Computed example of a mutant assay.
Amino acid sequence: MFYRLSGVHHTRYQTARALWPIPTDRRVVYLLLGLALAAPLYMSDLYLTSYMLPWLIWSAAALSLTLLMGIAGQLHFGFAAVMAIGAYTSIHLTRAGVPFELALIGAGLMAAVIGCIFGAAALRVKGLYLVMATLAMQYLVDWTIINVPAISGGAQATLSTPDVRLLFVPLQGDTAMYYGALLWVVIVTLLVLNIKRTSFGRALVAIRDKDFAASVIGVNPFKYKLLAFFTSSFLGGVSGAVLAFCYYQAVTPEQFGFNVSIQLVAMVLVGGLGSVIGAFMGAGFVLLLPIILTNVVAWMSIMGWLSVSSNLLAHIPLMVYGALIIGFILFEPLGLAKIYDNLRKYFLVWPFRHTQS
Score class of each variant (00 low, 15 high):
Glu332Pro: 04
Val286Tyr: 02
Met177Asp: 05
Ser309Gln: 12
Leu35Ile: 08
Gly335Ala: 08
Val268Ile: 04
Gln263Cys: 05
Leu343Asn: 09
Arg344Trp: 15
Tyr51Pro: 02
Lys223Thr: 14
Thr175Met: 07
Met52Ser: 09
Pro290Leu: 08
Pro40Met: 06
Leu191Ala: 14
Val219Gly: 03
Ser261Glu: 05
Ala38Ile: 03
Thr144Met: 05
Leu56Phe: 02
His354Leu: 15
Leu140Pro: 01
Asn295His: 15
Leu269Val: 14
Thr24Ile: 13
Leu35Thr: 02
Gly78Leu: 00
Phe212Trp: 14
Gly304Val: 06
Met43Val: 12
Ala136Leu: 10
Ser199His: 13
Leu68Gln: 11
Ile151Trp: 05
Leu171Cys: 02
Leu166Cys: 04
Val205Ile: 10
Ile339Val: 14
Arg17Glu: 06
Thr144Leu: 05
Gln74Met: 07
Leu109Gly: 11
Ala96Leu: 08
Leu313Tyr: 05
Leu68Phe: 06
Asn259His: 15
Ile151His: 03
Trp299Ala: 15
Leu31Gln: 08
Gly257Glu: 06
Phe168Ser: 13
Phe258Ala: 05
Thr94Ser: 02
Val270Thr: 11
Ala181Ile: 03
Gly115Arg: 08
Tyr178Thr: 05
Gly327Glu: 12
Met83Val: 10
Leu171Glu: 03
Gly173Asp: 01
Leu343Ile: 14
Trp55Gly: 02
Leu46Glu: 14
Asp209Phe: 13
Met83Tyr: 03
Asp209Leu: 13
Leu226Tyr: 04
Tyr13Thr: 15
Ala62Glu: 07
Val28Tyr: 06
Leu306His: 02
Thr175Arg: 12
Thr175Lys: 07
Tyr13Ile: 12
Ser59Tyr: 08
Ser357Asn: 15
Ala80Phe: 01
Ala213Trp: 12
Thr15Arg: 13
Phe168Pro: 03
Thr294Gln: 06
Ala228Trp: 03
Gly86Ile: 11
Gly335Pro: 01
Trp58Arg: 03
Met303Glu: 15
Leu336Asp: 01
Leu104Glu: 01
Tyr47Gly: 05
Gly322Asp: 04
Asp142Gln: 07
Leu75Asp: 08
Ala337His: 02
Leu75Asn: 14
Leu33Pro: 01
Val238Trp: 00
Leu343Trp: 14
Gly106Val: 11
Ala107Gln: 08
Ala155Thr: 11
Asp142Lys: 04
Leu31Ser: 08
Arg165Lys: 12
Asn311Pro: 07
Cys116Glu: 06
Ser160Lys: 15
Leu63Tyr: 03
Arg4Leu: 11
Leu190His: 10
Met319Leu: 09
His92Gln: 13
Tyr42Arg: 09
Tyr321Asp: 00
Val29Leu: 01
Cys246Pro: 00
Leu32Ile: 13
Ser6His: 11
Arg202Tyr: 10
Leu343Thr: 15
Leu334Tyr: 13
Tyr179Val: 01
Gly240Tyr: 05
Thr11Val: 11
Ser44Ala: 06
Arg124Ala: 14
Tyr179Cys: 03
Tyr139Asn: 09
Gly78Phe: 01
Gln255Trp: 06
Thr134Gln: 03
Met137Ala: 14
Ser50Arg: 07
Ile302Trp: 10
Gln138Lys: 04
His10Thr: 15
Thr134Asp: 02
Val113Thr: 09
Phe280Pro: 00
Asn295Ile: 14
